[in-house]
Amino acid sequence: MKACSRPGRGSVLLWTLWVQLVLSGSGVSAGDATKNCKLITDSKSERKALERLEPLVKINFTVESKIANESYTYVFQLCGDAGGVPGAGVIQEDKKTQKKTIIGRYNTTQAIGGSDWVMLIYGHGDHYSVHCSKETRQAIVMISCDRKIDMGPLEVVLEDRDRLHECFYLFELDASAVCPAIESKLSTGSIILIIAVCVLAVYLIGGFLYQRLIVGAKGMEQFPNYAFWVEVGNMTADGCDFVCRSKSRDDAPAYRGVTAEPLEEEPEERDDHLLPM
């Protein structure tokens, strides 16, 4: 008996540990998926805008771009290592030399949200070697609403490096995650009516099946609570008759048509005594 009890206790412990692991893994609060992004100004509005992008986390968005004889591959990841480069939110890879340049890091993030868009800014990228007063690069990713797709392809809009300060790379991405919630157009009365119709359908179908399969009723008796509804119908008809009629049925009508009853036969008068004898 002891040998049998030990495996049972061991299995219970294993199940307990497994349940605890599942519960601890499912207890991810809102915003944990984007916690790797360090906001410059950790305001509630920016954090809320960033949380709207949670469906895009841990996905590498890749796009190729050709400028004259130069060919580059850009990789963007939300709050994660783009292209496997630690700390990089957006990288640029030269297809000839395979050199990877960090355009923006997610530890320096800004998030600006609108009604149907979110603008994500990664700063503190690698320094320019010649352009933009040798400042650090920064990437701006404009994520716009598109309800038709979950997430679209990444597109390169431009690289503005001809200014003295604050040069940037601009990218575009469409996603349904930033779309505003569609408000329900059903009124309270419509919702109540839909619920009432559903309840009535369940009552009729369930009652019909019960009467037919369990009780064994046939014909109109299959209708649930048939006797009750017949009585209700009769009472309703009587009530309508009582309310709607202006005169009592017992009163004689003012005009009576020709009666269908047979008339009484009058006694026949004989005139035999007028004949000459």
Rank of each mutant, 00 (worst) to 15 (best):
V156C: 03
V157C: 02
R105F: 10
P153W: 06
I112C: 06
I59W: 05
G87W: 02
M119N: 10
A111G: 08
S65A: 09
Q98E: 13
F76W: 14
D116G: 12
E135G: 08
L154Y: 06
Y128A: 10
V118L: 11
V75C: 01
K96D: 12
R137N: 05
V156T: 04
G113K: 04
C145W: 09
Q98P: 01
Q98C: 08
E135C: 05
V75E: 11
D150R: 09
Q110R: 14
A68S: 13
Q110V: 14
T136E: 15
V157Y: 06
V141D: 03
Y106C: 07
G125P: 03
G84Y: 11
V141N: 07
K100D: 01
A68W: 04
N69A: 09
M151D: 13
D94Q: 00
L164F: 06
C167L: 09
C79S: 03
T73N: 13
R163I: 03
T73Y: 06
E159H: 14
K95Y: 14
E166G: 01
S129H: 02
W117C: 01
V57L: 02
C167I: 06
E155G: 00
Y122C: 09
S115N: 07
S129D: 09
I143N: 01
V90P: 01
N69C: 11
A88P: 05
K99Y: 10
F76N: 02
E159W: 04
K134F: 00
D116F: 12
L154Q: 06
I121G: 00
L158N: 11
V85K: 12
I143G: 01
Q77E: 08
R105I: 04
G125C: 07
K66H: 07
A68G: 15
T108V: 14
I102S: 02
P86I: 04
R163G: 08
C145Q: 07
Y74C: 08
S129M: 01
A111L: 06
G113D: 00
Q92W: 02
M151E: 10
V63S: 13
G114C: 03
H127Y: 06
Q98A: 15
V75K: 15
K134Q: 08
D126P: 00
A68Q: 12
L120G: 09
K66I: 12
A68C: 05
G114W: 14
L154F: 09
D146P: 03
Q92S: 12
F61V: 11
G83W: 03
I121P: 00
D160K: 15
L164D: 08
I91L: 11
W117I: 00
K96I: 12
K58E: 13
D162E: 11
I121Y: 14
V130L: 06
T97F: 02
R147N: 13
H165K: 06
V130Y: 07
K99S: 05
L120D: 12
G152W: 07
H131E: 13
G89E: 07
D160V: 13
I112N: 09
K148I: 03
K99W: 05
L120W: 15
D81T: 11
E93F: 00
M119H: 05
K148F: 08
I149R: 05
